[in-house]
Design a protein around this nucleic acid. Structure first.
Lengths: 209, 209
DNA sequence: GCAAATATCTAACAACTGTTAGGTGGCTGG
DNA sequence: CCAGCCACCTAACAGTTGTTAGATATTTGC
């Protein structure tokens, strides 16, 4: 959740909040309250500093938001790629998809305020900010498209699926969990199993057994 | 899309915007730009009146938002209920589910700025406003739960599905289309067919034929 | 021990927000 | 023809927003 740039082992002023602290707090507040409800003074207050001090670390509010959004994508992208590439060579299509889904939901619901903040506020943010975040988003989407295309070409998925549409459906469905997921009612991993079950096999009772 | 209260057949001043006009414009702006980006002056400007004039029709901004949110749910609820209840008595489970999904997506993507505004801004709005909209939301969710429970008890769905979770997955997935759906790239009805296909049967290629 | 850098502070700005008070013109019922 | 209501107007308010300028304490490198 932290991942400080380890430039030097000792940050200079002893009790300083610093750029990373401001960013962490911003991500948490954006995730909890949305974009419009979080002012610079709110961020500063939660960090124990004054609003103007933020301008020592960032040139504008938008710069903070872009930094939060970008890292949100990086976290979930790394999480998904690493989980999939850690699988054994001969892993089946179903297990690959289940792993990717699990990694995405873990990053969104357990791992990172940045990823959840991204999903929550992306649609609320001014367009220049959205545009700045788009390249990283596109790269993550391309990773999913590549994975799904590979599975389809291996014959694991129905031949006629539209990859782009399937990816939009899948990620959209997973991201929507952020609106209602409650860690007290169930784990992210259990939830990811449910989603994999539905997407892989559907909900209809079958008469083939 | 309109549904004016038909109190009297002739609204008095000829070129008046009126309560309904303000509401229609608010819904459209909220759908297009989100909650935080739409001020009273923006609404008034789009309506061709001044901000203070809005207070003739509404007591506060929140009152407008609640009115928009409530009607958004009413539209999609009526649309779904009416579509399902118009089906012949002996309609199968699969066709019922497909119809409900289609009605929901139609209301969201084709029919109503109110429904799309609701889905877009519900998560951005202050909590008292959310709370005011909750009863109608709950009623719509209960309608879905009843439908899904009936299908499961008829043996059409897998016996072990959690109804509440399935409903959250389904409606969440459908609502997420609002972020990317482009009417120029495909119809809402075609999209609803894709969603029904995936939810009913999954995406895995089967070896049973 | 001193200069420099780091991370914060105070004070203020213009713009914008939702909201209120009170005034105005036109249509309608009697 | 006129009282009254409907739907709007102008003007202004207090509070909040992102942002800037300049001062200040603390730590570090030499």
């Amino acid at each position: 959740m932290t991942e400080t740039t380890p430039s030097k082992l000792c940050d200079t002023p002893r009790n300083a909040v610093g750029r990373v602290g401001v960013l962490d707090i911003s991500a948490r507040l954006f995730r909890e309250q949305g974009y419009g409800a979080v002012s610079l003074r709110k961020i500063a207050g939660a960090a124990g500093i004054k609003a103007a001090s933020i301008y020592y670390h960032f040139g504008s509010k938008d710069e903070i938001v872009v930094a939060v959004l970008d890292r949100g994508i990086r976290v979930v992208h790394d999480s998904m790629r690493q989980a999939v590439s850690a699988l054994p060579e001969n892993t089946g299509a179903e297990a690959i998809l289940r792993t990717a889904i699990q990694a995405h939901l873990r990053a969104l619901l357990d791992l990172s305020d940045y990823t959840s903040a991204n999903v929550r506020i992306f649609g609320q943010v001014p367009q220049p900010v959205r545009d700045a975040n788009l390249p990283l988003r596109r790269a993550y989407e391309a990773e999913w498209d590549a994975l799904l295309t590979r599975l389809r070409d291996d014959g694991a998925l129905k031949r006629d699926v539209d990859i782009r549409r399937l990816r939009l459906m899948l990620i959209g469905a997973l991201n929507a969990t952020l609106d209602w997921f409650d860690p007290d009612r169930g784990s992210a991993d259990a939830l990811s199993r449910s989603y994999a079950d539905v997407f892989l096999n559907g909900i209809l009772q079958r008469q083939d057994t």
